[in-house]
Design a protein around this nucleic acid. Sequence first.
DNA 1: TACCGGGCTGAACATGCGTTCAGTCGAGTG
DNA 2: CACTCGACTGAACGCATGTTCAGCCCGGTA
Lengths: 272, 272
Amino acid sequence: MTYQYGRSRGAGLRGSGPGSHRAPDGQADGHSTQDAASTHNVTGTGNTSPPASAKERILTAAIDLYGRLGFDGVTVKEIAQAASVSAPLVIHHFGSKAGLRAACDAYVAEQFRRTKTESVRRGNLPRNVAHEAMAANRHLVKYLMRAFMEGGETIDAFFDQLVEDSLVYTSEAEEIGLVYPSRNPRHRAVVMLLQSFGSLILHRQLERHLGVSLLDDEPNPEGLDAYMATVLELYTQPVMNAEAFAELLAADAEAHTEATEPGSTQDRSPRS
Amino acid sequence: MTYQYGRSRGAGLRGSGPGSHRAPDGQADGHSTQDAASTHNVTGTGNTSPPASAKERILTAAIDLYGRLGFDGVTVKEIAQAASVSAPLVIHHFGSKAGLRAACDAYVAEQFRRTKTESVRRGNLPRNVAHEAMAANRHLVKYLMRAFMEGGETIDAFFDQLVEDSLVYTSEAEEIGLVYPSRNPRHRAVVMLLQSFGSLILHRQLERHLGVSLLDDEPNPEGLDAYMATVLELYTQPVMNAEAFAELLAADAEAHTEATEPGSTQDRSPRS
DNA sequence: TACCGGGCTGAACATGCGTTCAGTCGAGTG
DNA sequence: CACTCGACTGAACGCATGTTCAGCCCGGTA
């Protein structure tokens, strides 16, 4: 398989050590090039991975950087640097920057699929499936969030799969009395998923207000507790009194119809 | 060497009136340039605005394009084109692209502030304040969502203000029995806001699955109904059975401690 | 041995970007 | 009138980007 992946070349060429991929230019830009390269083996199971081909290194570095800085925020040069290769090699392997992006999408999707089936095969509970997939590798989740923000067919398909899975899990949980039935389970699943991912995307605010960083560092326990407690409360006890809300809605509509001209479709806004 | 342009400019180009700032080139670019220019007066009250200075046109065009394509997805040339001016004029008025961005931030924030105070002064209910601010001008909301994705101190401050407002409104609603108390109202407000905005950011999925486009077009009533009904159900009736969940959590923890070695930081139990 | 082909590189190229420059125009002012 | 000043412009500049090119190194093959 991957024997020496041409690092003999690197060593021979410029007699520095194997890990020394120095930027030839000044490279005043600070952010974590070798950091990205060092975290590349987080991907799979906990094996002590063989020294990772250049192509793999490029892929993982790209995913890491994309997740942290966004797709437009990273150049191929930076990716190449983080992977200890030259920029043209990135093009050589993936055709173009867009090709690299597509490869990242495929890789991440595959990774999540694998994690899911593994977790399911081990007989985990649904919520632990999600929990595991999430905790397993945060940088993949970060990448996913970026992909969600960008949109596109790949992520659409992924989301659809998530909805289907969620539907299955929820119906199972319904049978054992864990979750209550909904008037429209699919709609509920969609909205709940969106809310969850939305909170993840906006985790910056979550960190500022609850002190928990869901995506960046190892989350501190008390912050995580605060977040979990809040979400749990939101999901186990109602926020609003349905009858009072209906009353208010009716009164409001009446007030509107007498204040303004009638016939307009009334607004109904649930949020405070 | 550059005399001849002055002539073409002076003589041929502009025999029309002072207010005619036509784009000299063919303007082949497709996306709604004059649309952006035409929707500039949505901002304030319904006055028939005077023909809008170039600076204003640049600002509103920038907000519109930023909201639709994202900050990195728009060039100053495109903004200038949409505002029917030259690119250097944008720089002339705002110093730089970053300066324009900052001006947009300030403008949008001011606009929301004004809408809010107006709505409050008119004695609207809290939920209608939000509703009005939202419905008033969707493109401002789209801009805001982009800002949320990017992060930054400006949007942080905005979000903080939102939290404070929400807290006030919620406590009022609590007093009239509309909203149930929370163990931590602030945390609840933060998470609920995040969930709401998150759904807005991911409105693409909402549209695909529920058929409602919250941000793009005029939302179709049935789709909006479906979304509102789902959110309302989520907020008026619990999703999960708290006792069953606590039981499951305990059993799960037990299974974990006997399966794996103890002492490891196991699943946090968010209080039973 | 000679040759091939793929991994890989530095240098160079083309393009598009934000910005600068030098200048025109017209309204305002003495 | 002359003079100033700000809005505004086309041309051009500098720079960073994604990509191409010509060629190197080296294991495999005949």
